[in-house]
Amino acid sequence: MNSIIFSAGARILVALLLVFSVFMLLRGHNLPGGGFIGGLIAAVGFIVYMLACGTTQAKAALRVSPEALAMVGLLIALASGFVSILFGDPFFTGQWWWVGGDSYATAVVRPNTVLVFDVGVYLVVLGSIVSLACAFEEEV
């Protein structure tokens, strides 16, 4: 698709989609959103970029191979499940902490393993969808 309008517009669209995907990832636990849908949105961003500028450039923009990204995501998701072993809970039990403020409700930051898991899922989805799209793009 060699359209100047599309490839110029794609740059803005891709940036927006990537920011939106991170927004979706972060609001995920209590509101609609999460790692899966975030990863899908990010993957759509890369697919748009792929259509506008070609597979090679999109892969270069991703820096690492999409398969490796998915694999690292799997490892992160798996690792988040093992944190609970330190606290005597079963596998994958969510661990929540809070920093700043007086109680959980007023805390500034609330680091937790659930978000780490979601980040893993985000990477798995992003990596596998992009690699799938690359595979089809190269074949057709």
């Binding site: 398969e67 490796a68 694999m71 690292v72 799997l74 490892l75 798996l78 499940g81 093992f82 596998f91």
Partner: peptide, 16 residues
């Protein structure tokens, strides 16, 4: 958990 988690982790490392 370990009999399932170990092969998964191994798969990731073996792929990388």
């Amino acid at each position: 958990v370990f009999p399932i988690a170990i092969p998964f982790a191994t798969a990731v490392l073996a792929y990388l």
